[in-house]
């Protein structure tokens, strides 16, 4: 009797304890984030990913959508690999997220990252697509993309095209243009978008590969003009600018911008970020000061949709980087 009471009490205690623990767990779960969130920017201050994440965090903080503080930390290095390797190593830590650039795909293809978008991180949302265009300064003899292609055919391997980095988005763009138009140009790599604009505007190169926001101010001031954009359709805010495809040089190339978390992120963290990011991209501030200012195309791809987009991107990178000889056998 005494014994059975005791055992009953024990059972009761155990059950209570489990319930309490469970409740506490549930309580903790519903309270994500529970401490300061570290937002990793794997690039130096002032770049595209830095602007993206500081805009997002700015909007979240002003609207007080996060119960805890959010810290943006620039972990630049190795063209983004230092920051992304940090993220990959933080596997399972819900309080570390990062700005997503095409590097998460390309650096994996090149073997500079140990894991990719599916096994090394959780893709939270792809928020924008940045187009790439070919631009010249206003004094340039090339009025249209046809002029440029014709000149390149007359003087094979003589025209110079500036872009940011080697084996980068700009470099692949140039290579795809060469293939699509059957031309050969000299690609000149620069350190940053700003340096490319300087080289184009100073007439030191014949043309440059540009994101719309890098050159738009020069175009508005009639100091530069765009020849064509590598998009599927004309950009809504630049209806006069033809695509390469419609001019008969069919290729498509673009840069994605997004937000990623660590691998094995608990569901409540994924939920928090997807909901919060949805609120962010719904604000007028985001639409006006980020998307429109930078002439981006807004998207809201999450989950499998985002992953499949990145899978497709990986195939394109494998092909292009293989052709450029950037991949080790």
């Amino acid at each position: 009797m005494c014994r059975s009471v005791l055992s009953r009490l024990t059972v009761l205690a155990v059950v209570t304890a489990i319930t309490l623990a469970g409740a506490a767990g549930a309580l903790a779960q519903s309270k994500y984030p529970s401490r300061t969130v570290e937002v990793v920017v794997p690039f130096a201050p002032g770049g595209g990913t830095d602007n993206l994440m500081r805009t997002i965090v700015g909007i979240i903080e002003r609207n007080k959508w996060s119960p805890t503080a959010i810290n943006v930390v620039n972990r630049a290095g190795g063209s983004g690999t230092v920051g992304y390797t940090y993220l990959i190593n933080k596997k399972g830590d819900p309080h570390v997220i990062a700005g997503g650039a095409p590097t998460i795909v390309s650096a994996k293809v090149e073997g500079r990252l140990s894991a990719g978008h599916r096994d090394g991180m959780t893709v939270l949302m792809i928020v924008a697509i940045d187009e790439l265009m070919l631009s010249v300064r206003s004094e340039s003899p090339f009025q249209t993309i046809e002029d440029f292609v014709k000149a390149a055919k007359d003087r094979p391997g003589q025209l110079t095209v500036a872009g940011t980095g080697t084996n980068s988005e700009d470099h692949i763009f140039t290579y795809l243009l060469e293939k699509a138009a059957g031309i050969k140009v000299k690609y000149v790599p620069f350190q940053s978008g700003g340096e490319c604009v300087t080289a184009v505007m100073g007439g030191h190169v014949d043309a440059g590969v540009m994101n719309p926001n890098e050159i738009i101010a020069q175009v508005e001031a009639k100091k530069a003009r765009n020849l064509a954009v590598a998009a599927k359709k004309r950009m809504p805010d630049a209806q006069g600018l033809p695509t390469f495809a419609e001019k008969g040089y069919e290729f498509y190339w673009e840069q994605m911008r997004g937000v990623v978390g660590t691998a094995g992120l608990p569901p409540e963290a994924v939920k928090f970020w997807q909901e919060t990011l949805k609120k962010v991209v719904g604000t007028t501030e985001w639409k006006e000061n980020y998307i429109k200012r930078n002439l981006l195309t807004a998207v809201e791809w999450t989950g499998e949709e985002a992953n499949q987009y990145l899978d497709g991107l990986r195939g394109k990178y494998e092909k292009a980087l293989g052709d450029l000889g950037a991949l080790k056998k």
Binding site: N51, S192, G194, A221, Y290, N294
Partner: peptide
């Protein structure tokens, strides 16, 4: 020109855009 001459001005340019200005020849 709207072109950063240094790392610091690159960050400032980012700021200009977030404030809704367009740095460039017409500023």
């Amino acid at each position: 020109l709207g072109i950063p001459g240094s790392a610091t001005t690159a960050v400032m340019l980012g700021g200009l855009m977030m404030w809704g200005l367009r740095p460039g020849p017409l500023l």
